[in-house]
Design a protein around this nucleic acid. Structure first.
Lengths: 146, 146
DNA sequence: CTAATACCTAAACCTGACTTTAGGTCAAGA
DNA sequence: TCTTGACCTAAAGTCAGGTTTAGGTATTAG
């Protein structure tokens, strides 16, 4: 069993953040002894899951829902699996979105390299899509899609 | 030249957002006729770049910097290229981070599939890392890294 | 005895990116 | 004329996810 200060050091999280998580219900029925929070294995494992779900972009209120399911035992395995499946879709979608963004950014990098080499954007601004170097066209198309 | 209402429809952005972007300096020296904003090609192209940079996670104040460089002409090509190079690194790093998160989530999906099949977590909680199915070990390791 | 620590709460504050509100201008149509 | 619609501003409000502050308790070291 750990105090809030020990957990704060273990996870490199400010004490205020741990109290905030507790207030938001991320540690359902955490023990206290004379008012002082006692973090057990359950809470430590909860924090590991919180870290993961936060990094994946999940909101506190949804993480709270998950923690409540955990507290309810084996009857909620199905919901918990679905939550992770949904989050898997979300993260995969986010990665695909960022790959597209990356194409746009690569186009811009190429664009400014040309502008620097030319000393101006004149040649670039007259350039039609089908005159762009082949490996740049994909970036260009992405860069000008909705 | 477009009015704010037209641009709002073209980009599916609320008028209030366009005014907010303007207030934040994202359209340096945009024209006005008797107080009314007039969006020209410069501002339309700016909005395309704003969309891209926002999607890549850049903050308004950094986008503003970029727009000011644009207004300053060819002397800032180098800075602009560096900004995009930096943003490329940032997005690539974010994608790598999310790939790791994905491993953790895949582990959790697998975990709950087992728990559902078993009807409890008992077997899982006794399972040592080296007894996990091979294709799960990578997830497990990621799931339990810092 | 008292001062330093480590803990506690409630409530106010902060940041970024908007959105809403309240009040005002101006031109066109009924 | 009057009112509707599109525009304008400044300022306040919203939301998430914390952080800071103000004031209090309980234990330990000098």
């Amino acid at each position: 069993m750990y105090t809030i200060g020990q957990v704060s050091e273990m996870f490199h999280l400010p004490i205020s953040t741990l109290r905030y998580y507790d207030k938001e219900g991320l540690f359902p029925n955490m023990e206290r002894s004379s008012g002082i929070r006692r973090f057990g294995e359950r809470e430590i494992e909860a924090l590991r899951v919180i870290e993961c779900l936060k990094k994946s972009g999940m909101e506190i209120k949804d993480i709270k829902m998950f923690m409540e399911w955990c507290a309810q035992g084996s009857s909620t395995y199905e919901q918990r699996r679905e939550l992770f499946l949904k989050q898997k879709q979300a993260v995969e979608g986010e990665i695909r979105r960022l790959e597209k963004v990356l194409d746009m950014i690569r186009f811009k990098c190429w664009y400014y390299e040309q502008a620097i080499a030319d000393g101006s954007e004149d040649r670039l601004s007259e350039m039609l899509p089908d005159h762009l170097p082949e490996e740049i066209q994909a970036f260009y198309n992405h860069a000008h899609e909705s």
